[in-house]
Amino acid sequence: MTQTKKIALITGGSRGLGKNMALSLAKKGTDIILTYNTRQQEAAAAVKEINDLGAKAVALQLNMGDVKSFDTFFTSLATVLKDNFQAEQFHYLVNNASMGVHASFAATTEEEFDRLMNVHFKGVFFLTQKALPLITDGGGIVNISTGLARFSTPGYAAYASMKGAIETLTKYLAKELGPRGIRVNVMAPGAIETDFGAGAVRDNKDLNSFLASQTALGRVGLPDDVGGVVAFLCSDDAKWVNAQRLEASGGMFL
């Protein structure tokens, strides 16, 4: 099979930051496979937007918190690659799928901790492991972290700890996958106006104003501030960028 275009797999690419990453990559000519958990209609709408940009796109269902479902997912992915893209592998993996819990350290439950662990660390660890045979040599992986792994804001102890683990994992992946020419980097957003965390940054004016006041560029972020950074990391322009943490926060809490 001859691949004429590059393909990116973006988990959680049907909405929010993931959707913007998908659109940004599509604008650069990259075909997209995006995953969604439950919101199939949003995924279908995202696929249409990508198609309208002239790129191919397919949406697959994936629950990042259920590692036992990954074998079935990769069977479906292999079929989609062959049937929709005439390909056997893809070039870029973006580990973006996310869910949030806002709770103080003292109030965080074991159930909340496990949900965060399964989606943000265990899921990413084993999804990436199972993806390795399908990622082309010379490809790339982008793991999505958070500014909260650098600065501390009460209420995110568990979430930020999982992302800190992802940042460490990224370095190990870069080292171990280097012989295959696969680059592995972290992109860490700051506060962004999305529906993440029940839309707190977007909808809570006091919180929005406070975070803007603590950001060098004087505002909180928008999805368009982030997608292009991932598109850069998933391109030949970033061919010598490896094992790096790139924060897109406008300069928060400097």
Rank of each mutant, 00 (worst) to 15 (best):
L222A: 12
M21Y: 03
M21H: 02
R219C: 14
A22S: 11
D114A: 07
E167T: 05
V229F: 09
N51L: 05
G181Q: 06
A103D: 11
A45V: 11
S209Q: 06
K68C: 09
G178Y: 08
L17S: 05
R219A: 14
F85G: 01
T72C: 08
E247V: 12
T136D: 14
K163A: 03
E247Q: 13
S145M: 05
M1L: 13
V67F: 15
M64H: 05
I50L: 13
L9Q: 00
A188E: 08
N204V: 03
N37A: 14
N118V: 09
L127T: 01
M252E: 14
G221L: 07
G123V: 07
F74D: 00
G147R: 12
G197T: 06
K130W: 03
S145V: 04
G155A: 07
G178V: 08
K27S: 13
L53T: 04
L9G: 00
K68T: 10
G178P: 03
L81A: 02
V124Q: 02
G138W: 04
L173M: 09
E167A: 07
R183M: 03
D83I: 07
F105T: 15
K5C: 06
I33H: 01
N84H: 15
A57V: 05
A188V: 11
M162A: 07
K5F: 07
A248H: 05
T79V: 10
A87D: 01
A22F: 01
A149H: 08
Q40G: 07
G250F: 12
A45Q: 09
I166Y: 00
G164P: 04
T72K: 09
V47S: 07
I144C: 01
A191Q: 15
V241G: 05
K175T: 11
K6W: 00
V47I: 15
M99Y: 11
D52Q: 03
L23G: 11
F85W: 09
R180I: 05
P189Q: 02
G221K: 04
M21A: 06
T79W: 11
F253H: 09
V241K: 06
K5Q: 10
I182A: 02
E49F: 11
R219H: 12
V47P: 02
A238C: 04
T72N: 10
A59T: 02
F73D: 02
G138T: 12
P154T: 12
D83Q: 08
R245G: 14
T215S: 08
K82Q: 13
E49V: 15
T153P: 14
R245D: 15
L53R: 04
S213R: 09
A26T: 01
Y36M: 10
N185R: 00
P133A: 01
L246D: 13
A238G: 04
H120L: 05
F125N: 13
A174M: 09
L222W: 10
F125T: 10
T4D: 11
D224P: 08
E111Q: 15
K239W: 11
L254W: 12
G227L: 12
L169K: 00
N242F: 15
V94P: 01
K171M: 06
G12Y: 06
